[in-house]
Write a protein that binds this DNA or RNA. Structure first.
Length: 431
RNA sequence: GCCGGGGUAGCUCAGCCAGGUGGAGCGCCCGGCUGUUAACCGGGUGGUCCCGGGUUCGAAUCCCGGCCCCGGCGCCA
């Protein structure tokens, strides 16, 4: 038998006259006179198949097929300008694997409805394209760190003390005996592990009970975090810009078709090469004032301010030296300027905003305890974290990358919920 | 948490302001069409008008309470 199973991508490259068998799901069905046009979708693409009335049994099957039915089709590849993609399969055998009930998704579906039936919407070509880019982003993160001598580690999701502010913790009942929380960040555990492996990274979810209703917030998001011993702020900025540039480079290499399908402006990504501009928080405030935006030194930058700044840059850029009070307690104060920290955020251009937060950590025990108290927190809650400063503490720095936000920016999406298959937001935990 | 918008057929919406037997398009079913491209044309099918209470002869429509969703802000990655 001369039929071979091929993916649709492969089938579309076969010479005219080749015999092929493809399988997938019905994407479109059009009946016209004595022909049934059934467009089939698999993970690699779509292809039109044509069933003619001559083959009576098969025609009836094709004529009555429903959208999203699983089918297996054999036929001959034929070049035809009328077919989408210029090639189609003239069907000789049409086998139904599983006939679908009427598919609920039609052209007029709303964002809300698509979220309700997300488990079906993930089949869409848009979602599929995004997932492929996302796959490349994750792979590139692992490849980058491994190439740079970082060890991958795994940290707990159940924790007992906050890393960020306490109000944003999800509480979990632990055997009815005590309360634990879902982690907001693996940072503290990474800091512990640098005394073993020196350079470590992890890719894991982080959970934040922020009641944020914006297009950039998930309550469960994917976090790539790194921490390195013997490193200061500037060493880390270099790692961060290299990492981002590498991720973008890989996506441009491997996901041209997907970016095209998503109508992403590729030229905006091609310029994402190091070095990224570095401006101080103080400079950022001045830039905003020149643009006529009212801000005071010492305030954290809000969404409008961030957006205004991202318009000034063509590629991602760093803002460093945030005021002490605008950042979490573990950031080291700049010895040259006690009003600011050795911290930096990386903002994506085109209005996307913050994708990385990081900086140098406090290495001195007494400074750390003082800072914890200054922030109105109880040092007893951070005992093991303080402990790290007692036994051979060294200068170290790290950062956290919001992977979903990175995917959102690279794909040019207008909402973060489309950057992840099953988004969790303040209002949505189903499906 | 605050501000704004919304919930009517499987889906997208109109009807609500000004109360009087619930509509359209898409989907689905039937028929037609000699290659369609989100096919097209004709016919048919389809309703707990979010829930509870109130006003009224009469409520999708007005009033009160509740639930849910969407957008934005603050906060953050």
């Amino acid at each position: 038998m001369s039929f071979t199973n091929v993916s649709i991508r492969e089938a579309l490259q076969l010479p005219e006259g080749s015999k092929a068998r493809i399988r997938g799901w019905v994407y479109r069905r059009r009946i016209y006179g004595d022909k049934a046009f059934v467009v089939v979708r698999d993970s690699t693409g779509i292809m039109q198949t044509v069933v003619a009335k001559g083959s009576t049994i098969d025609f009836e099957k094709a004529e009555n097929i429903t959208i999203e039915s699983a089918i297996e089709v054999e036929g001959t590849v034929k070049n035809d300008p009328r077919a989408p993609g210029g090639k189609e399969l003239r069907v000789t055998s049409f086998k139904i694997i599983s006939k679908a009930e009427p598919f609920p998704i039609t052209a007029s579906a709303s964002r809300e409805f698509l979220l309700d039936i997300r488990h079906l919407w993930v089949r869409s070509r848009k979602m599929t394209a995004i997932f492929k880019v996302r796959n490349t982003v994750f792979r590139a993160i692992h490849d980058y760190f491994k190439n740079k001598g970082y060890y991958e580690v795994q940290c707990p999701m159940f924790i007992t003390a906050a890393v960020e502010g306490g109000a944003t913790l999800f509480e979990v009942d632990y055997f009815g005996e005590k309360k634990v929380y879902l982690t907001q960040s693996s940072q503290f555990y990474l800091e512990a592990l640098i005394y073993s492996l020196e350079k470590v990274y992890t890719v894991a979810p982080s959970f934040r009970a922020e009641k944020s209703r914006t297009r950039r917030h998930l309550t469960e998001f994917w976090h790539a975090e790194a921490e390195a011993a013997w490193a200061g702020l500037n060493d880390m900025l270099k790692v961060e810009e290299e990492l981002i540039a590498y991720i973008v480079e890989r996506v441009l290499e491997e996901n041209q078709q997907e970016l095209e399908f998503l109508k992403r402006d590729i030229s905006a990504l091609e310029g994402v090469k190091p070095p990224f501009p570095r401006i101080s928080y103080t400079e950022a405030i001045e830039m905003l004032k020149r643009k006529g935006i009212k801000v005071e030194w010492g305030e954290d930058l809000g969404a409008d301010e961030e957006r205004a700044l991202t318009q000034e840059f063509e590629k991602p850029f760093f803002i460093y030296g945030y005021p002490v009070k605008a950042k979490a307690f573990y950031h080291k104060t700049d010895p040259q300027n006690p009003k600011v920290t050795l911290s930096a955020d990386l903002l994506a251009p085109e209005g996307y905003g913050e994708i990385i937060g990081g900086g140098e950590r406090i290495a001195d025990k007494n400074e750390l305890i003082r800072k914890i108290k200054d922030f109105g927190l109880n040092p007893d809650d951070y005992q093991w974290y303080i402990d790290l400063r007692k036994y051979g503490s060294v200068q170290h720095a790290g950062f956290g990358l919001g992977i979903d936000r990175t995917v959102m920016w690279i794909c040019g999406l207008d909402h973060i919920i489309d950057a992840i298959p099953f988004p969790r937001t303040i209002r949505r935990i189903y499906p």
